[in-house]
Simulated scan of single mutants.
Amino acid sequence: MSNTHLFLKSGFLTTPGYNGVGRYVCQLQRVVLKFCKNNGSSRGMRDFVEKGLINFAESNPGVVVYLKPRRHRSPVIIAEYLNGDKQHISCRNYTEEEVLKWLNLLRTQSGNHEGFRLRKMWHTDHPSIQGPWTPFTFREEGLNLVKFPQENLSVPLNEPKSATQQLLEAFKRQQKDVCDLEKQRGE
């Protein structure tokens, strides 16, 4: 067993736990593409900037893309996430397709990279000391043998009648009264 985990940054997961339940929020905030205009190791990055950058930016409007040309340096992709993490990827001698694959990988990640040791594998905003709740937690034991539906177990609803129901009942009473009057006149 190694002791390398002792030197990793540790903490709790800071990504929103409910991302994608209501709507999905891309965790990648901005991307900085650093490259050299003349260096041969930046050829793939330059090709991506010329051919594929517009398509990537149009398909990901929530991600801000910055270009930073610099002299005599190898190409680098710097990704910044909503939780404050940054990730650096050296793109030395990468092709245009490899740069696009790395950008798509960074776009789909949450920002917590491998150098992060989680203290807990699960997280909840409202911890419970009673244990997990199930639908059968506070049920009576006798209900296991009962055949449903039963009238004595059903709870009557004391909801007020809607206006439509009141009108229908008034119409039925009026029809009944009209029928009773006709019977009286006919006798």
Rank of each mutant, 00 (worst) to 15 (best):
S41V: 05
S41T: 10
R43M: 02
G44R: 05
M45C: 14
D47P: 00
F48A: 04
E50G: 13
E50V: 14
E58L: 12
V63M: 03
V63Q: 03
V64W: 02
V64A: 07
Y66K: 10
Y66G: 04
L67T: 05
L67Y: 12
P69G: 04
P69V: 02
P69N: 03
R70Y: 13
R71F: 09
R71W: 08
H72N: 14
R73A: 07
R73Y: 07
S74P: 02
S74L: 06
V76F: 05
V76W: 06
I77T: 03
I77R: 01
A79V: 12
E80F: 09
Y81P: 11
N83A: 12
N83W: 08
N83E: 08
G84Q: 06
D85I: 08
Q87I: 08
H88N: 06
H88T: 08
H88Q: 10
H88R: 13
I89H: 10
I89A: 09
C91A: 15
C91G: 09
R92A: 01
Y94C: 01
E96S: 11
E98N: 11
E98M: 13
V99N: 06
V99A: 06
L100V: 05
K101L: 11
N104A: 08
L106V: 07
L106T: 11
R107A: 14
R107M: 10
Q109C: 14
S110Y: 15
G111T: 10
H113C: 10
H113R: 13
E114W: 05
E114H: 06
F116Q: 03
